[in-house]
C-alpha cells in the first residue's frame, strides 16, 4: 500500500505530461517548454543518481550534458545526423569524460569533491569557448536535427514531446532498477556509512566511479536532446551556473526518491517561465520561494504528499 501511494505522484505527473498535448497545451511554445523541462529532468535524474544514490554532490554536471551536445555538433559539422551514430557517440563520449574526470574526483569527498567537479566543469567550459571551428564563444547552430534511420520524424513537435517523455520514463526506470540492484545497495551503503561498507569488504571507489560514468552517459543523452530541441549549442551549456541549476532541481525535488529530480526540474522550468511571463522581476518572487521551500518542505517536492498526510493526521 505504501509503495503504491509513493508511486501515485510520479504516475500523476507522467499522465499529465502524456495528456498535455490534448489539454489545450498543444501550442508550440508550451510543448517546447515541456520538452525542455523533460530533458532537464533526464539530466537532473542522472545527477540524482550521484547525489541521492551515492552522496556525490557534483557541481560540474552540466559539463557532461555539454560534452554530449558538442558530440552532436562535431558530427553535425561532419555531416552526420543519423541517430544510430549520434546517440552512441553522445552517450559514450560523455560517459568517457565522466570516467576520466571521475577517476580523479572520486578520491576526494565533501566540499572538495564539489570543488574538483567544478574545476573539471570549468575546464570543459573554457575548452568549448576556444573551439573556434565550432563557433567558439558564440556557439554553433545545427545544420540539421538528428534523424532516425534517415527519417525526420523527431522534428515534429508532438513526436519529439513523446520521445522525450519516453526517454524520461526509461531513465527513471533505469535509475530505480540500478538503485534496487546489488550495485545500488553498495552505492547507498557507502553513502550512509562508508566505514561500515568498507569493513564489510566493499571498496566504494569502483562503485562510485561506475555510477559517475553512468550518470555522465545519461547526461550526454540529455545533451543530445537539448541540442535537438534548440538546434543550437553554446559553451554556456557547460557554465557552472547550469551545473548549479541542475543541483538546485535535485535539491528542490528532494533526495528521498529519484522522481524528485523530475518534479524539481519541471517545477523550476515551469515556474520560471510563468513568473517571467507575469513580471520582468520574477526573481524577486522565485528567490524567496526557494528559501521558503527549504525552510518548510523538509523532504523536497517528492516528500510533499507524506508531509501533507502527516499534517492532516496532526
Amino acid at each position: 500500500m505504501g509503495r503504491l501511494r509513493g508511486a501515485l505522484l510520479p504516475l500523476a505527473v507522467f499522465a499529465l505530461l502524456a495528456a498535455a498535448p490534448f489539454l489545450g497545451l498543444g501550442a508550440g511554445y508550451m510543448l517546447n517548454l515541456l520538452a525542455r523541462g523533460m530533458i532537464l529532468g533526464i539530466a537532473a535524474l542522472s545527477l540524482w543518481l550521484l547525489v541521492g544514490g551515492g552522496g556525490l554532490v557534483s557541481l560540474g554536471h552540466a559539463a557532461m550534458l555539454g560534452v554530449g551536445a558538442y558530440a552532436v555538433v562535431v558530427l553535425d559539422a561532419a555531416g552526420v545526423t543519423e541517430a544510430l551514430v549520434v546517440l552512441p557517440a553522445a552517450v559514450l563520449v560523455a560517459a568517457l569524460f565522466a570516467l576520466l574526470t571521475g577517476a580523479v574526483a572520486i578520491g576526494t569527498s565533501g566540499v572538495h569533491f564539489i570543488m574538483i567537479t567544478l574545476a573539471f566543469g570549468q575546464m570543459a567550459f573554457f575548452t568549448a569557448g576556444a573551439l573556434s571551428a565550432y563557433g567558439g564563444d558564440d556557439g554553433y547552430t545545427l545544420y540539421g536535427r538528428t534523424t532516425v534511420l534517415g527519417a525526420r520524424w523527431p522534428e515534429d513537435r508532438l513526436a519529439f514531446h513523446y520521445l522525450c517523455l519516453g526517454l524520461l520514463a526509461a531513465t527513471l526506470g533505469l535509475v530505480q532498477v540500478l538503485l534496487a540492484s546489488r550495485f545500488g545497495r553498495v552505492l547507498r551503503a557507502a553513502k550512509e556509512n562508508p566505514q561500515r561498507a568498507q569493513a564489510l569488504g566493499f571498496n566504494p571507489y569502483p562503485y562510485r566511479l561506475a555510477a559517475y560514468a553512468i550518470a555522465g552517459g545519461i547526461a550526454g543523452l540529455a545533451g543530445l536532446l537539448l541540442a535537438n530541441a534548440t538546434e543550437f549549442v553554446a559553451p554556456s551549456y557547460l557554465a557552472w551556473q547550469r551545473s548549479g541549476d541542475l543541483l538546485f532541481m535535485v535539491i528542490l525535488g528532494g533526495l528521498g526518491a529519484p522522481h524528485g529530480a523530475v518534479l524539481g526540474a519541471l517545477a523550476i522550468v515551469l515556474l520560471e517561465e510563468w513568473l517571467a511571463e507575469w513580471t520582468e522581476h520574477w526573481r524577486l518572487i522565485f528567490g524567496p520561494l526557494l528559501v521558503l521551500a527549504v525552510l518548510f518542505l523538509r523532504g523536497g517536492l517528492a516528500g510533499l504528499p507524506a508531509q501533507l498526510r502527516a499534517l492532516r493526521r496532526g
Partner: peptide, 23 residues
C-alpha cells in the same frame, strides 16, 4: 540544516538580491 539545503536557500537569496539591485 544539511549543506544542500543551505546551498539552495542561499541561492534563492542571490536571485532575490541580484534582481532587487536591478530594480
Amino acid at each position: 540544516r544539511d549543506h544542500l539545503s543551505q546551498v539552495l536557500a542561499t541561492f534563492g537569496v542571490i536571485l532575490f538580491l541580484n534582481q532587487a539591485v536591478k530594480l
